[in-house]
Simulated scan of single mutants.
Amino acid sequence: MRRVLIIILLLVVLAMAALFGGYRYWQSRLAAPIAISESTLYEVPRGAGYHQVVSELVAQGVIEDAWAFRILARLEPQSLPRLRPGEFRLEPGMSGRELLERLGSEQLVTYPLTIPEGWTFRQMRDALEAAPKLEHRTEGLTDAEVMALLDREGVHPEGWFFPDTYLYHKGMSDLELLEQAHSRMRATLDEVWAERADDLTIETPYEALIMASLIERETGAPEERREIAGVFKRRLERGMRLQTDPTVIYGMGERYAGNITRADLRESTPYNTYVIDGMPPTPIALPGRAALEAAVDPLPGETLYFVAKGDGTHHFSRTLREHNNAVNRYIRNR
């Protein structure tokens, strides 16, 4: 009897040793470096489950011991990451556990998309459609249909998207980037409008957005924005037409080929500020924060005219005679 007990005890000890050894070996396989020798991109497909990802990683030669990861799912399901769709960069020397942590982390591979200040909404949509890693949900839709998807049905899109560099990852949609840009513009416009000057001619945030788009299209020189805003403010106060060329160009649409003729200046469009009184009905571009700030805080002064000098800046004049002389100097003699 004693001999039997000793044998049973030995068997138990051996079994426990085997289990412990097996457990240690299993853990060592999870801690072992993955089977890559250089940085590798791996994409977690949208909707993919843990076992599908493990199978793909085995098929791509990234991991070798699929059994270790399948046992992990059975014994430690609470330790499994919530996989995120998108691309991740896997590095040599990472362990299997570190790989899993990476696939459930925020460390997605991102790509920049720059929307410059002064671009139109059409140009922004073209850039989105050309972004190769984006999911193109708005392709083929009209501007009105896009705005409806953004819960802004009936709103003209021009001006309502903040120009900036946005980061996106594979699996994101163009609609998500549009939502980001639209939220940024609405928040920025609210902030800027709250700090507006007391004696503005414009009366609403939307009018500030329109004015900022005119300023954005007129100059890229930071020191000129408030002075151009001041010129527009004084012209509106005196009942003078704004007579700003970018509105003519915007009204021409795709017909614009690089030149404005006298006939173009006389053409009656809703945007031609040589013909209409006041501001155009909508913005003509996507203004940045600096243009928005200038629109709500014009520089006081007496200037009523300005003309491009050809170097990116303008000559400002108080009288029509002075302005005509400046036109002769900078335009006709160029």
Results as ranks from 00 to 15, higher is better:
316 F>K: 00
257 A>G: 08
36 I>M: 09
256 Y>S: 07
196 R>W: 07
45 P>E: 01
39 S>I: 14
279 M>G: 09
307 V>G: 10
146 V>K: 03
238 R>M: 11
10 L>C: 15
65 D>Q: 10
315 H>K: 11
12 V>H: 09
266 R>N: 02
119 W>T: 09
273 T>L: 08
176 E>D: 14
118 G>K: 01
187 A>S: 15
278 G>I: 09
152 R>F: 00
282 T>H: 02
80 L>W: 03
186 R>W: 04
248 V>E: 03
234 R>W: 06
184 R>C: 01
32 A>W: 01
153 E>Y: 00
295 A>R: 01
90 L>V: 12
163 P>Y: 05
78 Q>A: 15
44 V>F: 05
174 D>V: 11
229 A>M: 06
253 G>W: 01
56 E>V: 03
38 E>C: 06
300 P>D: 06
119 W>C: 02
170 K>N: 08
19 L>Q: 04
136 H>L: 14
209 L>T: 08
304 L>Y: 06
102 R>Q: 11
256 Y>L: 02
49 G>C: 09
253 G>K: 04
197 A>Y: 12
257 A>P: 07
97 R>M: 03
109 V>E: 12
134 L>E: 00
6 I>M: 10
72 L>F: 04
238 R>P: 06
107 Q>F: 14
196 R>P: 02
213 S>Y: 03
39 S>Y: 06
60 Q>A: 12
137 R>S: 15
137 R>T: 13
66 A>Y: 04
111 Y>A: 03
64 E>S: 11
29 R>N: 01
194 A>S: 14
97 R>G: 02
6 I>E: 12
162 F>S: 06
66 A>G: 13
47 G>V: 10
205 P>Y: 08
324 N>D: 13
65 D>P: 08
73 A>I: 07
143 D>G: 08
177 L>R: 01
97 R>F: 01
79 S>I: 11
316 F>Y: 02
51 H>M: 12
234 R>E: 04
294 A>M: 09
186 R>D: 14
322 E>K: 08
259 N>I: 04
310 G>Q: 01
106 E>T: 11
130 A>V: 07
188 T>C: 07
326 A>Y: 00
96 G>Q: 03
58 V>F: 13
305 Y>T: 12
218 E>G: 00
157 P>L: 09
278 G>R: 08
106 E>C: 04
330 Y>C: 10
33 P>N: 05
274 Y>V: 02
132 P>N: 13
165 T>P: 05
276 I>R: 14
209 L>Q: 03
334 R>E: 07
327 V>S: 10
167 L>T: 09
271 Y>C: 05
262 R>A: 15
282 T>A: 01
285 A>C: 06
332 R>M: 07
271 Y>I: 00
104 G>P: 13
321 R>L: 14
192 V>D: 00
31 A>T: 04
53 V>C: 10
310 G>S: 01
256 Y>G: 07
214 L>D: 08
211 M>L: 15
88 F>D: 08
293 E>W: 03
321 R>A: 15
320 L>R: 15
296 V>Y: 05
135 E>P: 05
258 G>R: 09
71 I>T: 03
105 S>P: 13
55 S>N: 15
212 A>F: 09
257 A>L: 12
173 S>F: 03
196 R>D: 07
69 F>W: 04
299 L>I: 00
166 Y>L: 07
129 E>V: 13
256 Y>V: 07
67 W>I: 07
24 R>I: 00
109 V>F: 02
247 T>E: 06
222 P>N: 12
236 L>I: 06
123 Q>I: 05
211 M>E: 04
